[in-house]
Simulated assay, not measured.
Amino acid sequence: MGLLVITAAAVAYGAAAGLLLPRAAYRLSVDPDARWRDRCPEGHPIPGWLGPPHCRGGGAATPAHRYGTAPAGTATLAGVLCGVLGAAVGGRPEAAVFVAAAPVLLLLALVDLAVQRLPDVLTLPLAGALALGLGAAALLPGAAGSWTGALTGGGALAGAYLLLFLLNPAGMGFGDVKLALALGVTIGWYGWGVWAAGAFLGFLYGALYGLALVLRGSAGRRTAFPFGPFMAAGALTGVLLGGFGA
């Protein structure tokens, strides 16, 4: 019964958070040298960062309209992600940290898919929040991971991505390196086996997607595509393995 309550709470939180993501995704989806969007496609000011992507309009001359990602889709996806995490980790204290971070990772994925960019305003605070959150979780009874392992995993994965970036800057963005820091903290929590699985699966998912594009004729061997969503998917799989295993 307790697990059902936790899963339901995670789904409810995820769905509520997902409803708020589309406006932020639209505002953040700009080129690296551009300012964050502060107006809708029709030129109306956007109030705040969180909420549904629509303008109320001002009468017949400026009717209400929508833009960006549909809130129903982000709410559904965020609810599913948080619910699966809640079911996997259960009542252990780290569950709150992982569930809370899931909508932020979804937001990063939406922005990366739109403009192949992972904003520092999200990646770096996320890494810090995960490190602090898991540090607090490690102090509570029932925690199934290691804070030291989380910090070491974050440094190791970020270091590995930094090396790949230095070897081939055209094949990987520096935003991926910063995201790797947060994801490494997450998968390092459950040990090196989970860390290795999460890191490997991120590359595998990305490679399969790239291969599918090439086979369909939609891209060439050197075509760039957003890698952040696949990194996040690999880390999510690792956390699920670690959560169910613990």
Rank of each mutant, 00 (worst) to 15 (best):
C55L: 03
G184F: 06
F230A: 14
G18L: 09
V177A: 12
A131G: 08
G220L: 09
G133P: 08
V111N: 02
V97Q: 00
A25Q: 04
R66I: 08
V5I: 13
Y205I: 14
V104I: 15
A144F: 01
A212L: 13
S29P: 07
Y205R: 03
A182P: 08
L19T: 14
T123R: 04
A137C: 05
L21F: 13
G234Q: 02
L140A: 13
V84F: 00
M172N: 07
L215W: 14
G149Y: 01
G133S: 04
P141Y: 07
A160F: 13
P226K: 07
L19A: 13
P229S: 07
A199E: 06
A88Q: 00
L122P: 01
G142R: 04
F227E: 14
G155P: 09
A246D: 11
T237P: 02
Y26N: 02
L4S: 06
L241Y: 05
A246M: 12
A224G: 04
Y161H: 13
G135P: 10
R66N: 14
G210Q: 05
T74E: 10
R216C: 10
I187Q: 01
L151D: 07
L166P: 10
P229C: 10
A199G: 08
A156V: 15
R23V: 13
G57E: 04
G58N: 14
L211Q: 09
V80I: 12
A129E: 07
A109D: 04
L113W: 12
V239S: 00
A78M: 05
C82H: 00
L106G: 05
A72K: 04
F227I: 15
M231W: 12
A96W: 11
Y161K: 08
A212M: 12
A60Q: 10
G159I: 10
L201K: 01
G228A: 15
G202E: 10
A127P: 09
A137G: 05
G245Y: 14
T76I: 15
P103W: 01
V11Q: 03
P103V: 04
G171I: 11
V214A: 13
Q116A: 13
R221W: 13
W49Q: 09
L183G: 11
P41Y: 08
G210M: 05
A24Q: 07
A129K: 11
A233R: 07
L126N: 09
M172D: 06
P47A: 13
V121Q: 08
A129D: 07
G68N: 14
A88Y: 00
F98V: 00
L201R: 03
S218P: 01
A96K: 02
G155R: 06
L50E: 07
D38H: 11
G238T: 07
A34V: 02
Y67N: 05
A235N: 09
V239L: 00
A95T: 14
G133D: 06
P63Q: 01
V97N: 00
L241A: 12
G133M: 03
G245R: 15
A170S: 15
C40V: 05
G59Y: 10
A95L: 02
A199H: 01
M1G: 15
A10D: 02
R221V: 11
Y26R: 02
G188Q: 11
L240Q: 04
L140W: 06
G43K: 06
L28E: 04
I46D: 03
V5S: 05
L181T: 06
A182Q: 10
L21N: 11
G245M: 14
G79A: 09
A10E: 03
P45M: 09
P93I: 08
T237G: 06
I187H: 01
M231G: 11
M1N: 07
G159A: 15
